[in-house]
Design a protein around this nucleic acid. Structure first.
Lengths: 111, 111
DNA sequence: TGCAATGTTTCCAAAATATGAAACAACGGA
DNA sequence: TCCGTTGTTTCATATTTTGGAAACATTGCA
């Protein structure tokens, strides 16, 4: 595979990398309901605000969320509606697979 | 966030982790067209067969592909149809985002 | 202006992933 | 059976990602 092709695949991979962390999936789940600021989210999930800021930055860099300054705080909100369908597909796939192997039930969606 | 919630998010994250590597996206793209065996794919993309085997193993472990033994070789094929819609969503999101920032054009789908 | 609150960036250590060589296993044909 | 082909696993190494503390920046308010 040549350099050019690799670069193309790396670009295509970016959004999945952004989703490949439990804390970021958790944050998207929160953001699905309403906008949150960084310190709210950090407190909600129990991590340092600097870590929360970095996770949100990654989600923003691939266009899944957007931010808006409001005084001293920054409000983040879900920006890509199709992420919901995407997560639903992921959930069906992984849980269908689990069910086949372990007999578990899928009771929740990914997001 | 408690232990139980973390485990739930980790499960939800698995499929995105499997997709979070350019070589695995490339392999899925090949598998979209027809089944391939390990050494074929390894040669096609220019990596060691052990590495190819491990990447395929990861895709299989989350149910995106399935395998079938045929004599000395193992044939892998795409197993989760919705992965195509999912990738299309990813492509729209990331390329829409790129276009906004850099003025690039989206000419190909992710898979 | 001085201060408190909110976010981001930088730095370093720790954890998770990826790579390639080599050993190992399974299979079919000569 | 012996050998060549195909795949998987193991091991050590290298790379990437993550987490948390601290420094820094920005804003609003007293």
């Amino acid at each position: 595979m040549d350099e050019r092709a690799l670069l193309r695949y790396e670009l295509k991979t970016e959004i999945f990398k952004a989703l490949a962390h439990p804390m970021r999936i958790c944050m998207l789940e929160k953001l699905k309901e309403r906008p949150w600021c960084v310190c709210e989210l950090a407190a909600e999930v129990g991590i340092d605000k600097s870590v929360a800021s970095k996770h949100l930055s990654q989600l923003k860099s691939v266009g899944l969320i957007s931010d808006e300054k409001r005084g001293t705080l920054v409000e983040y909100r879900l920006a890509a509606p199709c992420i919901l369908d995407m997560a639903a597909c992921a959930e069906r796939t992984i849980m269908g697979n689990r069910r086949k192997r372990l007999g578990l039930e899928a009771t929740e969606s990914v997001l």
